[in-house]
Amino acid sequence: MSLKIKVFFDFVCPFCYLEYFSLKQAAGGMDVTFERIPHELRRPPSPMVDPMHDEARLKRFDEVLLPAAKALGLPMQLPRLSPHPYSTDTFLGLLYCEDHGLGQEYTEKVFTTFYEDEKDIGDLKVLGDIAKELGQNVQEFLEEITAKTQLTRLDELNALSEEYDITSIPVIYLGDTRLSGYHTPDVYKQAIADAILQQEVTPAAGMSCGIDGNCGF
């Protein structure tokens, strides 16, 4: 049986970008399926984040994020956008692509578009280009986003964060095992292997005596 891995994430979380590729590398060749669950870090009226004018964030990128990305072989950049976008429309695009069997492909393309190409993933034109690259009906894709037809569904998915006590991201569940924050591929690979083994173990029926006193011998 395939192991289901739940991932709580946001596209504008740089540690989620690292998690995506680290987990992808770790899961290579293993029988797993992914369920990626939106956890939007902010929506209006919450202010947008502007890392390009925040010395602490710039320092954190240089000292923490960039070395981790290099260790994974990723050409990560801190998107030179001021400010960084909200991700509501980006997630609505994800729901559309999931309904068309391209959720993983869309997720990866959004991450690389933002953290490698440094494009604004809150811009509908950028999202439309992603949809086109994935072979989707761009007009239908954009109309669904602008009409907000799946906003209720997105809100319901966001609400799962409270049920699972998600206070920071990324968080992944491998079966019943929870891992918070970004980890290296080796850590993810061992966690996946352990979860698959646990899933495959079927408890044996214990030996017993019946209520009639018959113990089977």
Rank of each mutant, 00 (worst) to 15 (best):
I121N: 12
Q199K: 13
L197F: 14
G135W: 09
P203H: 11
L58R: 14
I196N: 02
K109D: 10
H39N: 06
Y188K: 04
L74G: 01
S46A: 14
G122N: 11
E108W: 05
P185I: 04
L81F: 09
Y188S: 07
K6N: 12
G101N: 13
T177L: 14
S46M: 12
E105A: 14
L174R: 09
S22P: 12
M1K: 13
Y182T: 04
Y106G: 08
T184M: 11
P79H: 06
D120F: 07
P44V: 13
P14F: 02
M207H: 13
Y188P: 06
D212G: 13
A193C: 04
T152I: 10
P14A: 06
P75R: 01
M48C: 09
M207A: 15
F11A: 03
L124I: 07
V110W: 07
L41I: 10
G103M: 02
L65N: 02
K132H: 10
T152F: 12
V171T: 11
P75K: 00
G175S: 01
R57E: 05
P170G: 13
Q25W: 02
F34Y: 15
A68E: 00
F114P: 06
F111C: 08
D165S: 13
E116W: 00
P45E: 11
V32R: 04
V138K: 14
D120K: 01
V110Q: 03
E162P: 02
N158H: 04
F217S: 11
F11E: 03
L72P: 03
I172L: 07
D212R: 05
F91T: 10
C13G: 10
E144T: 09
Y188E: 07
R42F: 14
E63D: 13
P85I: 02
D89Y: 12
K189A: 15
T90I: 10
T113R: 08
I145E: 01
F141H: 00
A26N: 01
F9D: 01
E35S: 06
R42C: 09
M30W: 00
Y173C: 08
S168H: 08
P38I: 12
R80A: 14
Q136T: 01
P185W: 01
A69H: 00
P45Y: 04
F9Q: 12
F11I: 06
P45K: 05
P44Y: 08
L179R: 10
I166Q: 01
L124D: 03
M207P: 15
A147F: 02
I169Q: 10
A68K: 00
P83Q: 05
E162D: 09
K189G: 08
S82G: 09
K109E: 13
Y86F: 15
L41Q: 05
G73W: 05
L72E: 00
R43V: 15
Q190L: 11
A159C: 01
I172A: 03
I166K: 03
H183P: 03
T152M: 11
E40D: 07
G101K: 03
P47K: 10
R153D: 10
R153E: 14
Q198K: 15
V171S: 06
S46H: 07
F8K: 07
R60P: 00
L23A: 01
